[in-house]
Design a protein around this nucleic acid. Structure first.
Length: 573
RNA sequence: CGGGGCGUAGCGCAGCCUGGUUAGCGCACUAGACUGGGGGUCUAGGGGUCGGUGGUUCGAAUCCACUCGCCCCGACCA
């Protein structure tokens, strides 16, 4: 491709609304342009990268035996109404009406539609297993699109759905997807962790996220430094360590006056006790119930774990009024000792001896309280895991916190949708049974940005070969006909060898071309100028090499073959 | 949805507080000249319903009201 004939509108200045590297560089490099909040144009270069992601994902899905289909982006409302998600999705669902007033929604995901295919087309256990996938535009009216391609209202997703006769079969399908995803993410050159994830209100059995590590990520995850334990903090648990005051003799409970001191910091400062002696007591609303969650003063409540422990879909921190009603005291003076309602306590807090906590009376705390004698509660894992916490799986391992971008999610759904929608099969005994389903997503367009979050420097993008819009960026310097002739022959030779090349043939100064080359991030840069060409050479430099002096001189005649072998040898291609 | 902020040329911004010539700067763009290995220099140009509507005023980019859009933090995120 000739640069002069392409549409690659690079700009020097970052867009005002870009806050992270991928957004800035995708816009500056002319890969994408914003159309509206959460909607983007993919310009030629951006589309080429996305096609690479798609191709890798498609290859790995096909290798795993999945079958590509395409479902509509516009869906009659009846499908989401059938499963109740018409209401449950709330404002996130884009709704529209046709000319007759019939209701539709844009597809945010396609469980209903694929289940409809299954109930119509799958009859027998002999038809199983099946895994159907599509690469399709998905639309969700996100409350807050952000980060350029990282969180859009319209995005490209690969979503796959497996159908099995049994739970065991579903696990095999899930495992096949885990392998396929691992291969795909490896080929894309991404550094990621496969983490245990919340299976949500769907009652899923197995659920894991492919979290691509990036400081700009929206998700918090923890991973063990010693074993392979890794989990979204939403579901991460922690091995209990030695409790504060363990083994101490229980002292007599006493009331302490703490006027105006409602926070852990204030109370520990006033009383001179360490934070891990405090029993932090928070009130949550779960459905119509108000419950107390107790964690140690130096810990935080994990609301997902709390909701799970309660069997609730969601919990919300109680309002000020609810706290007063439940405890009889202002916010900041709640405690399990003497509390009348349901109490859930984290393991670590449960073990605290001679603890300090709120007295359920404004301006008062109680000290030297002990569980069993002064209070009680249901013991669960309720605390948020953090860096330095002991790994729940191995001996001696410490958890480390990371930020991640969810690049993929694999999930055994069970029979949630199939039972609801009547998607069943007949087994060997003529017995009708619901299909056991799994679903598996990869954020195709998001991964374009995610790759840049991991592969860029101060000058621009550094694409892995497998995702690069072109393999070779050919830069010609000067107007001498010999230079253009050499470039033309190399360009044609590369094309004949299946190497994709972008030739910057513009009448621009060398500095402009080099800056643009660094910005675009094509992995191999070949410079042809009169200087080196005089000795029959061209200059070769990988984008990952920062120092231009380290460019390698390669005889023009040997350049194409050398480049071809470099492209072939690159991982993931 | 709560809090904060921004809409002025294709992009990035100043001007607004304290209303008053022809609305300005940098980049980009057009033409010419010089230049030619890391975003070069000079000359001459083109490009604006100042987000929209209404109001105040002799006069509004500037003040007021409403409205639309966008961004950031939070909530939310099958």
């Amino acid at each position: 491709m000739l640069f002069s004939r392409a549409l690659i509108p690079t700009v020097k200045e970052a867009p005002a609304d870009a806050v992270n590297a991928s957004h800035t560089l995708l816009v500056r490099g002319g890969f994408i342009r914003k159309v509206g909040a959460g909607f983007y144009d993919f310009l030629p270069l951006g589309l080429r990268v996305m096609r690479r992601v798609e191709a890798i994902v498609r290859e790995e899905m096909d290798r795993a035996g999945a079958l590509e289909i395409l479902m509509p982006a516009v869906l009659p409302a009846e499908y989401f109404k059938e499963t109740g998600r018409w209401d449950r999705f709330g404002d996130t669902l884009f709704r529209l009406k046709d000319r007759k007033g019939a209701e539709f929604n844009l597809g945010p995901t396609h469980e209903e539609i694929v289940t409809d295919i299954a109930r119509r087309e799958i009859r027998s256990y002999r038809d199983l297993p099946k895994n159907l996938y599509q690469i399709q535009t998905q639309v969700r009216d996100e409350p807050r699109p952000r980060g350029g391609l990282l969180r859009c209202r319209e995005f490209i997703m690969k979503d796959a759905y497996s159908f099995d006769a049994t739970e065991d079969g579903a696990k095999r399908s899930y495992e096949a997807m885990r392998v396929a995803y691992t291969r795909a993410f490896d080929r894309m050159g991404l550094t990621y962790r496969l983490v245990a994830a919340d299976s949500g209100a769907m009652g899923g059995v197995l659920s894991a996220e492919f979290q691509v590590l990036a400081d700009s990520g929206e998700d918090a995850i923890v991973a063990c430094g010693s074993c392979d334990y890794a989990a979204n903090v939403e579901v991460a648990t922690v091995k209990p360590s030695a409790a504060a005051g363990e083994g101490e003799a229980a002292r007599e409970k006493r009331r302490v006056h703490t006027p105006g001191k409602s926070s852990i910091d204030e109370v520990t400062a006033l009383l001179g006790v360490p934070k891990d002696r405090m029993l932090k007591s928070l009130l949550y609303t779960a459905g119509s119930e108000t419950v107390m969650a107790v964690v140690r003063g130096d810990h935080e409540v994990n609301e997902v774990l709390l909701a799970r422990a309660l069997g609730a879909a969601d919990v919300f921190l109680a309002t000020e009024a609810d706290v007063k009603k439940a405890t009889g005291a202002d916010v900041g003076f709640a405690g399990p000792s003497g509390f009348g309602g349901r109490i859930l306590v984290d393991r670590a807090a449960a073990a605290v001896a001679n603890g300090v906590t709120g007295a359920n009376e404004t301006g008062w705390h109680v000290a030297d309280v002990n569980r069993g004698r002064d209070w009680n509660g249901e013991i669960h894992d309720l605390r948020l895991a953090a860096t330095g916490d002991p790994c729940p799986r191995c001996e001696g391992g410490k958890l480390q916190s990371y930020r991640g971008i969810e690049g993929g999610h694999i999930f055994v759904l069970g029979t949630h949708y199939s039972a609801q929608m009547g998607a069943s099969y007949l087994d060997e005994n003529q017995e009708k049974k619901p299909l056991v389903m799994g679903c598996y997503g990869i954020g195709i367009s998001r991964l374009v940005a995610t790759a840049i979050e991991q592969h860029s420097d101060a000058d621009g993008i550094v694409w892995p070969m497998s995702l690069a819009p072109y393999h070779v960026h050919l830069v010609t310097i000067g107007k001498e006909p010999v230079v253009a002739e050499a470039a033309r022959s190399l360009h044609d030779d590369l094309l004949a060898r299946g190497v994709e090349v972008l030739w910057d043939d513009r009448d621009e100064r060398p500095g402009v071309k080099f800056k643009d080359a660094d910005l675009l991030g094509i992995p191999l840069r070949v410079t042809i100028g009169a200087k080196s060409l005089a000795s029959g050479n061209v200059e070769l430099k990988p984008r990952s090499e920062r120092d231009p002096k380290k460019a390698e001189l390669v005889p023009l005649a040997a350049a194409a073959e050398k480049l071809q072998s470099l492209v072939r040898a690159a991982p993931g291609t």
